[in-house]
């Protein structure tokens, strides 16, 4: 990530301009030639600094009102292999391993599930549970009851 990359981040973190030549507009905003903007973004996408490019839907606006954080206490020796399998199911929008904080928090695998109904979200949890099988010692589903704050992640500029 160099200075030019950071200018591209600043110019696009709120989105691409909805114009026929959006990367040319980014070029204008950053002072870089259009070909260089596109080449840099191709590289950043390949490196994973850009997860993906496209539409970022609002879960609630699409009717997904039941957003559950399903958390699992999975054996350390098996969590990475199982995490990869769970992610590939296509049932969760995020799948991460995070540290435990015993005794307050004993869960190390986090999956986000979404449903238009509570049952739909819990159905996804059961499908995940079936794959995790006996590697799970305990689990819970934490539904969000209120959005207290939601701003975009601002990383630069």
């Amino acid at each position: 990530m160099d200075e030019a990359d950071r200018r591209i981040v600043a110019a696009t973190q709120d989105g691409l301009p909805l114009l026929p030549r959006p990367y040319h507009a980014v070029a204008e905003a950053t002072g870089l030639p259009p070909g260089e903007v596109m080449a840099r973004m191709e590289r950043l996408l390949a490196e994973g600094a850009i997860r993906r490019i496209g539409a970022v839907p609002n879960h609630y606006a699409l009717g997904y009102r039941f957003n559950g954080m399903a958390v699992w206490d999975v054996e350390d020796a098996r969590v990475d292999a199982l995490g990869a399998r769970i992610a590939a199911l296509g049932l969760s929008s995020h799948c991460y391993r995070r540290p435990r904080h015993p005794p307050a928090w004993s869960y190390n695998l986090f999956t986000m599930v979404h449903g238009r109904t509570r049952e739909e979200a819990l159905g996804a949890v059961e499908e995940i549970a079936a794959v995790l099988g006996d590697a799970v010692r305990a689990r819970e589903v934490l539904f969000s009851t209120r959005i207290l704050k939601k701003t975009g992640l601002r990383l630069a500029g």
Partner: peptide, 30 residues
């Protein structure tokens, strides 16, 4: 397509249209 995306963004169905940046790749932390 451009007009539809603009309307979807305006209506809040899309919170954004563009690259989804990963914070760690940018030297930041989450």
């Amino acid at each position: 397509l451009i007009a539809r995306l603009a309307a979807l963004r305006e209506a809040g169905v899309l919170s954004r249209f563009g690259p989804l940046w990963k914070a760690e790749g940018l030297g930041g932390a989450v």
